[in-house]
Design a protein around this nucleic acid. Structure first.
Lengths: 143, 143
DNA sequence: TACGGTGAGTTGGAAATTCAAACTCAGGAG
DNA sequence: CTCCTGAGTTTGAATTTCCAACTCACCGTA
């Protein structure tokens, strides 16, 4: 049987390899340079170079020069890259809840003044999107 | 420099390897047996066996016997496993938006009757959790 | 002009992982 | 008996990863 076609699998093709999401985390934190990303993630330089190249090719990051004459550049998030924010947020939340031991390394405060506890809700009704609340909709048939 | 300590990285240690999230997807879909998971993900059997073992050890899945005499078992989600639902939902959503080409392989309908468009919101105020709406809170200091 | 330093990678070889296919093992089914 | 199923193991080759060292372009400085 052929493996299931699935957008989650497609997403993982792009950002699912080791180091990719950690590199993106660093860019979110404003560490946009190769050496910063390497140091903060712990990825080896060759693998990191490959991952960054792939993320740029996939349109998740873009390479932006910040100096011409020593030719230097930083990595910046594209719209697609920025859209990964909530994925990373929830992954962190899950790690907080089920993996990390001892004090949490990072806690986000929302602009409302409370510590952020993320919830995933339906944009239409505002109710939480639990596994039980979802059913597969008829797919838009292919030709 | 030591790599950043980070709950997202911890989460990825547990579920970030190739095939792990795809295996969990299958269990969410009710395909709880080894051969089903192998067929629907496309993972090779040895790697899949290793991943399932790790997920069980990490408390994300549990092995539950469904027959004693030919000793057989299925994999079931633990609470930690069920909590990954929203991570997978958002990853799928990102794949839908930025990777998958052509018709979407799967669309969820929420119990309110609308096609699900997931939003991540702050549990306290209900407003969306955007990158700009978050600031790092002072960490609970370690000893 | 020579010397060292920085940013952003490449290169090389050993070590670890993955892949696919074949094999095992326990227990029915015909 | 012999074949089949479920749930993995085993095997050997092909890939990837790891780490350290190297490169290359340029700048500062002495």
């Amino acid at each position: 049987m052929a493996p299931r076609t699935c957008s989650m699998a497609n997403a993982l093709e792009v950002v699912g390899e080791r180091w990719s999401l950690l590199a993106l985390r660093e860019v979110f934190f404003g560490n946009t340079r190769f050496d910063q990303i390497a140091a903060n993630t712990g990825a080896s330089r060759d693998v990191l170079a490959a991952r960054l190249k792939k993320l740029v090719a996939a349109g998740v990051l873009e390479k932006r020069p910040y100096s011409d004459h020593p030719p230097r550049h930083e990595y910046h998030l594209t719209e697609a890259g920025r859209a990964l924010h909530n994925v990373m947020l929830l992954l962190k939340e899950w790690g907080d809840a089920y993996v990390t031991e001892g004090p949490l390394p990072l806690v986000w405060e929302h602009s409302c003044g409370h510590v952020l506890q993320p919830r995933v809700v339906c944009a239409s009704c505002g109710e939480e999107a639990t596994p039980e609340s979802l059913t597969p909709a008829p797919i838009p048939a292919a030709s």
